[in-house]
């Protein structure tokens, strides 16, 4: 085991994918000479040259559509959108074009593109640079949505996303880029659609993804001190999500808490809740509790943002609540 930063793991995945497959290109705003807003693509221009590491103008709609067209014509574009908030400008390309192509054209082909983008707050970046919009994409048939929680799965999932024959929205957390975590000596590919059980437990299941996984693990540690055994599942892939692993865990614990940074209303947690209330109803021994952001845009002021984002305390409270220990 070695330690690697989350951002460095993503860089490594891009480097390895480009070295392995000449059809992989990366494109986006300031990703070449400038190395990307968060430095993720730094060094790629020198290694692979300007034809495969393409600095684009600030034209999100066009470059997303170009990724679709390039993918239809034999390339595997990995498009960086600087902040997830800017995906609003790429929506036609993703939702009407990329997502539909395989189905709408009768299976003639698909759009093997990846859109990488950072979501999440914690930087006082304000309402237009902090949002977690993954639920939008998970709602659209045809798109896969991935959200890694640490360097090891950031690497493994990005390799799978790039190799995937269909469009993948790959969501990174900007607060994680500089964080180090353990990775295996040989970085490995992680298939899409599979959750990882990070901590075994038998009283409560906590399902999470992305940066919120750390909150779930910390809360589980705290509950262990109180004698409550919490199982923590990292979804890794949001669409398609690993219903089998979540259901099996719920069957064991009878209690379910879902933690994510995104707004709770109509979100990923809502979908998991609805699905488990349907197929897992017989296993439920308490209410399913979601821990996410309230129904409010992400505030700028640090104190407000800290209250707005999910915390270990809120996860602990939710665990107590589902156990009827409030």
């Amino acid at each position: 085991m070695a330690d690697l930063r989350y951002g460095a793991a993503i860089s490594q995945a891009l480097t390895d994918a480009m070295a392995e497959d000449p059809s992989v290109i990366v494109m986006g705003e300031d990703i070449g000479g400038a190395g990307g807003s968060f430095g993720i693509t730094r060094g790629l221009l020198d290694k692979f040259g300007p034809e495969r590491v393409i600095d684009t103008p600030i034209s999100e709609a066009a470059i997303a559509g170009m990724a679709v067209g390039a993918a239809m014509s034999g390339l595997k574009p990995v498009l960086e959108i600087m902040f997830m908030d800017f995906v609003t400008l790429t929506m036609d390309a993703l939702v009407n074009q990329a997502a539909k192509a395989r189905f709408m054209f009768g299976g003639q082909g698909s759009v093997p593109m990846v859109l990488r983008t950072p979501h999440g707050g914690g930087l006082s970046a304000g309402p237009q640079h902090s949002q977690c919009l993954e639920a939008w994409f998970a709602h659209v048939p045809g798109l896969k949505v991935v959200c890694p929680s640490g360097p090891a799965n950031a690497y493994g999932l990005l390799r799978s996303a790039i190799a995937d024959p269909d469009p993948v929205v790959f969501i990174e957390h900007k607060g994680l880029y500089a964080k180090k975590g353990p990775v295996p000596d040989v970085l490995t590919v992680i298939p899409l659609g599979q959750a990882a059980t990070l901590r075994q437990g038998d009283r409560v299941t906590v399902v999470s993804y992305g940066a919120a996984v750390a909150l779930a693990l910390a809360a589980a540690g705290q509950m262990a001190d109180e004698g409550v055994s919490v199982e923590v599942i990292d979804l890794q892939t949001i669409q398609p999500w690993d219903e089998t692993v979540v259901l099996a865990s719920l069957a064991k614990t009878g209690h379910l808490v879902i933690v994510h940074e995104a707004v709770e209303a109509f979100g990923v947690g809502a979908e998991i809740t609805a699905r488990m209330a349907d197929i897992g109803f017989a296993h439920l021994s308490g209410p399913i509790i979601r821990v996410g952001a309230p129904f409010m845009p992400v505030p700028f002021a640090a104190e407000l943002e800290a209250r707005y984002r999910p915390s270990v305390e809120r996860v602990v409270t939710a665990i107590r609540k589902t156990l009827g220990k409030e």
Binding site: A61, A62, G65, M66, A67, A70, S73, G74, P77, N96
Partner: peptide, 12 residues
Amino acid sequence: AGLSIATGSALA
């Protein structure tokens, strides 16, 4: 929409 798809295809 075809404008950007064709532009991307031209890039390929």
